[in-house]
Simulated assay, not measured.
Amino acid sequence: MDKQLMISLGREFGSGGHVIAEKLADNYGIALYDKNILRELAAEKDVGEKNLRRYDERPKNPLLSRTVRGFTNSPEENIARMQFDFIRERADAGESFVIVGRCAESVLRGRPHLITIFVMGDMDQKILRTMETENLSEEEAKKRVEQVSRQRKAYHNHYCKEKWGDARNYDLTINSSRLGIEGTTCVLMDYIDARRAADNWE
């Protein structure tokens, strides 16, 4: 791959977005960044990865947080900022990658060779997928989908001017329930290939 390719993939919980991101990364032979960013940050900062995971993709708690002269005591905000810096550094280095969530479509906005995608899904399909992947009852899965979706929305909207899941903020928004994971991945690859060809990336 001669030209840089950055794919930002936002997703609703239970939509299969992470699996789709894995398939895109495999297809293009590029890195996939998701929770593994925390592993790299933990090694770099010499802290436990488990501690970082507790605050991943969560908005800061205003009742427990204060900011003085640009410095904050909020672990959620500090970890978010570290991840945003990580994404920018990889982009600045010319690396090609797929990045899942983490406000990447906003963090990388305006850069050439960036494609932004949002994967959504029907509620019944998201519940079913969550039941299967997390071994939950239907009621438990529904609560899990709703809880994580609220959390992701609050996180994104805290750090970005653009609203989470608003189709106007992405190159392509797609419902994975219509074609399934494989079909959705194929549609996305067709779009990415068409964009790269139209923009003369190669």
Rank of each mutant, 00 (worst) to 15 (best):
63 L>I: 10
114 L>S: 05
142 K>N: 12
123 M>L: 14
105 E>H: 14
84 F>W: 11
108 L>R: 04
148 V>I: 15
70 G>N: 11
119 V>E: 02
85 D>K: 08
86 F>I: 00
148 V>Q: 10
149 S>I: 03
65 S>H: 01
87 I>L: 09
111 R>C: 09
140 E>Y: 05
132 E>P: 00
101 G>K: 03
133 T>P: 04
114 L>C: 07
131 M>P: 03
115 I>S: 08
54 R>F: 10
93 A>I: 08
146 E>R: 11
76 E>A: 02
144 R>L: 14
96 S>D: 11
91 A>P: 01
61 N>P: 00
63 L>R: 13
138 E>A: 15
109 R>D: 13
105 E>V: 06
105 E>L: 04
119 V>P: 02
81 R>M: 11
88 R>W: 02
76 E>F: 03
144 R>G: 03
68 V>I: 13
84 F>Q: 02
104 A>K: 07
138 E>I: 08
94 G>A: 09
124 D>I: 11
128 L>G: 01
107 V>L: 11
144 R>F: 15
100 V>D: 09
72 T>Q: 06
100 V>T: 10
100 V>L: 12
115 I>C: 06
108 L>D: 10
140 E>R: 10
89 E>P: 06
113 H>I: 08
135 N>A: 14
78 N>V: 06
73 N>L: 01
120 M>Y: 07
131 M>N: 07
128 L>D: 11
69 R>A: 15
95 E>M: 11
75 P>Q: 06
125 Q>D: 15
85 D>Y: 00
148 V>C: 08
99 I>W: 04
128 L>P: 00
113 H>G: 07
149 S>A: 09
60 K>E: 05
89 E>N: 13
77 E>G: 00
141 A>F: 09
93 A>M: 09
67 T>Y: 00
68 V>L: 13
118 F>I: 03
96 S>A: 07
105 E>D: 15
148 V>F: 14
68 V>A: 10
99 I>C: 10
89 E>M: 12
136 L>D: 06
77 E>L: 04
88 R>A: 02
147 Q>G: 05
140 E>W: 02
138 E>Q: 15
127 I>G: 08
147 Q>V: 04
78 N>E: 13
68 V>W: 11
136 L>M: 14
72 T>E: 07
107 V>A: 09
142 K>M: 15
99 I>K: 02
113 H>F: 13
65 S>A: 07
92 D>A: 12
115 I>E: 08
55 Y>E: 00
134 E>Y: 15
80 A>M: 06
